[in-house]
Design a protein around this nucleic acid. Structure first.
Lengths: 295, 405
RNA sequence: GGUGUGUAGCUCAGAUGGUAGAGCAGCUGACUCUUAAUCAGCGGGUCCAGGGUUCGAGUCCCUGCUCACCCA
């Protein structure tokens, strides 16, 4: 991805409008990005430095021009499947010890939310092999990785790993595996073909029963430290305590003065409130492959 | 890439005992054998011949020997349980072995044998349910089997080890928070970052791993800084070289080159050869500091990370003040702290200022589950911290006329 | 051609993380300035229609209709 200070033609960039309005676009002269914030001519974005506020031609609304970090990619991508979000992604990156030089396998690719993050974490020198059994989805994911500029670290293939494994060329050459599949237990045998001793496998499943079954299969197949985790993001909003309350009841001048005094007392104070949160995503299961001299 | 199967001389290994306690060991030149809690010492040559992931168990002969991981076959049988514990006496009378019997057994038998003896001398064991038997054996094994599991010194293992041992040394930073901070700050190879790391040097070390020698981490400090985590990650020389210390005084001063930290070494004192050598080293160090400082000042950074505990709040605010101007528009600011109010105040100020977007104050609710057939549930911990700490993150934007055209 | 919008009987909902929140209208009560005003309170919600998909978790997609905007 881009590391220069200015956005150039061909760059995949983020136009940020709000938490739920994050647009990922490839800049191209003559093109226009339209959304609720207005109409943004790429000609007027190309050459601007990251962190600029770019304005729509009419209406005066702006979007922040930002680099396409994996977190923003996750929030800007087209959902072809349900996707994995930041809390789980950062957790699994940690569990897999994903860093430059490592080789990691992922199945299935889904919408590429995890792939984009892992790919970035493995560069330089590493590689993500990601597998998707749905042909059309794989094709679209491949196009996305090209758009994100990840083809130097991400190899995307159309393949059903539960039935056909990860391929002969990866035998014993993989440091970590991430499985986001309906039946992860069915892939454990093939994982063992590619994962180095001491390597970790992480699965993501929404149901306890899936985790149970996979854990049993992993224990039976030469894995130890089988751990099950759940992580959820709790987000907080903030409000200026001084801001006038909508619910106030102004009966008299006296009451009004009272309220103003209260406002003064709160000047500079901030009130936190809990934002709505996802109450469930999935369970992460992690296990470590036993040393080579154990079965 | 390097993914050594065995711990080596000069490297670290994390050991976990049967009760789950963890400790990091340095296998340095002076290291003889490893002492894990109340266990007898483990000889170094045995350690060096044990692969990561393996278990060493102290056998009846007093030697530490390899032990295979259990396959968990017992767990896989049909999970239906018909029997129950209705008729078990609950009056402490079930065990016929006395404490001294157990002590004697431990002197001559392996831990496994002690557990076996306890089970066979228990009046109730045979009539327990299948699940209760498993739990009983597991608990007794934790107590009497002396074994250690060899773990790699990854950022996650170190973070868990420090967190379990003394939470305050890593300012309450759990591994999920550590990882989230790195992701939120978009720490990547080739990036340039400023960091205040009060978490035993673990954040800095984990950043260095992600950079893999390409890019820079400027580690801001005042007085000194902990390096435990930085060393125990077994970073390569290239990874370490990307980390450059910067004294906060140099950043806050209007005349940085007159600060103590950046003052050029005086070459007045070169009388004896020894002193001359020392002076030379001092001069080299001074040149390096100057180069590091100039490198930082040459252009703004892509990310600012501040991880500070409750005692370092003032320092965190000071560092934030001097480092924010050095953060490039479009760059990420990420703070970790244990108290909500100062973070919420910053969040409010940042949002109101117009100089930031994507301003978020976040906690991570993380819990671990016991995963066993028909017995999967969250671990019951009476004093757990499911979501300790707060992360404040944002993207800096150019709020000047130039930035908004 | 492209983009956005659509929830209460009606009309809306924050210039950057406030879409189960409101206003009007309606109803009830208090009051006095009574073809009614003012004040207080109450009732009213499942998100335009249809289809398709995601893992056994949607911040998912498509078509049609509506209105708005951009390009030509």
């Amino acid at each position: 991805m881009t590391s220069e200070e200015c956005a150039r033609e061909g760059d995949f960039v983020i136009l940020w409008g709000s938490y739920t309005q994050i647009f990922g676009v490839v800049l191209k002269h003559g093109e226009i990005t339209n959304n609720r914030f207005g109409n943004f001519h790429h000609d007027e974005i190309i050459g601007r430095s990251y962190g600029s506020k770019v304005r729509s031609r009419k209406g005066g609304l702006w979007l922040a021009l930002l680099r396409a970090s994996p977190e923003f990619v996750t929030h800007s991508l087209t959902h072809r499947t349900q996707i994995v979000y930041h809390a789980d992604i950062s957790m699994l990156r940690c569990l897999l010890d994903a860093r430059p030089g490592r080789v990691i396998c992922e199945a299935g690719t889904g919408s590429g939310s995890v792939s984009a993050s892992l790919g970035r974490a493995l560069r330089p020198g590493g590689r993500l092999h990601t597998f998707e059994f749905h042909e059309e989805r794989q094709r679209q994911a491949q196009a996305d990785f090209e758009k994100y500029g990840l083809l130097d670290v991400v190899t995307s293939r159309h393949r059903d790993v539960c039935n056909n494994g990860f391929g002969e060329d990866l035998r014993g050459a993989v440091h970590g595996v991430f499985l986001d599949l309906p039946a992860p237990w069915a892939a454990v045998g093939h994982v063992s073909e590619v994962l180095v001793p001491g390597g970790k496998v992480v699965t993501f499943s929404p149901c306890v029963e899936q985790v149970d079954k996979t854990a049993t299969e992993l224990r039976r197949s030469g894995y130890f430290d089988v751990r099950m985790l759940e992580t959820l993001a709790v987000n907080w909003g903030v409000r200026d305590a001084e801001a006038k309350s909508k619910k106030r009841r102004l009966g008299s001048k006296e009451a009004e003065e009272k309220e103003e005094d209260a406002d003064a007392a709160r000047r500079g104070e901030w009130l936190s409130y809990q934002m709505p949160m996802r109450s469930h995503t999935g369970y992460l299961l992690v296990a470590t492959r036993c040393p080579a001299d154990e079965p | 890439m390097a993914f050594p199967a065995f711990p080596a001389r000069g490297a670290h290994v994390v050991l976990r005992d049967s009760e789950g306690a963890q400790k990091v060991f340095f296998l340095g030149a002076n290291c003889q054998d490893l002492r894990m809690g109340k266990y007898p010492a483990i000889p170094l040559d045995t350690v060096l011949a044990t692969p990561y992931g393996a278990i060493l168990r102290r056998e009846a002969n007093g030697k530490w020997q390899r032990h295979r991981h259990s396959s968990g076959e017992a767990d896989t049988a049909d999970a239906e349980v018909q029997e129950n514990n209705q008729h078990l006496a609950q009056d402490n009378s079930a065990q016929s072995l006395t404490p001294s019997d157990v002590r004697d057994l431990k002197k001559t038998c392996s831990g496994d044998a002690v557990v076996e003896a306890l089970a066979s001398n228990s009046a109730t064991f045979a009539s327990k349910t299948k699940f209760a038997k498993e739990k009983y054996l597991k608990k007794k094994a934790q107590k009497h089997v002396q074994q250690v599991t060899f773990l790699r010194p990854s950022a996650m293992e170190l973070c868990e080890t420090y967190y379990k041992a003394s939470r305050s040394k890593v300012c309450g930073l759990r591994y999920d928070y550590l990882s989230s901070i790195l992701c939120q700050a978009d720490v990547r190879s080739g990036g340039r970052y400023l960091v205040l790391d009060c978490a035993a040097g673990l954040v800095t070390g984990a950043m260095a791993q992600q950079l893999a020698g390409v890019g820079q981490v400027f580690r801001v400090f005042k007085g000194g800084f902990p390096e435990k985590g930085f060393f125990e990650l077994d970073l390569s020389e290239a990874e370490k070289a990307a980390v450059r210390p910067i004294a906060v005084e140099a950043l806050s001063s209007h005349e940085p080159f007159s600060t103590e930290w950046l003052r050029p070494a005086s070459n007045a004192e070169a009388e004896e050869p020894v002193a001359a050598g020392r002076a030379e080293a001092r001069a080299t160090r001074a040149r390096q500091r100057k180069a590091d400082f100039e490198s930082l000042e040459a252009q703004p950074v892509h990310g600012l990370l501040i991880v500070a505990g409750e005692d370092e709040l003032d320092l965190a605010m000071e560092v934030l003040e001097v480092c924010l101007p050095r953060l490039s528009p479009g760059g990420r600011a990420v703070l970790f702290g244990q108290h909500m109010q100062p973070m919420a105040a910053l969040q409010g100020q940042w949002r109101a200022s117009g100089g930031f977007v994507d301003v978020r104050l976040m906690q991570l609710f993380t819990r671990e589950f016991q995963v066993l057939p028909a017995r999967t549930h969250p671990f019951m911990v009476s004093e757990s911290q499911l979501c300790e700490g707060f992360i404040l993150c944002a993207s800096k934007v150019d709020n000047t006329a130039a930035g908004t055209d």
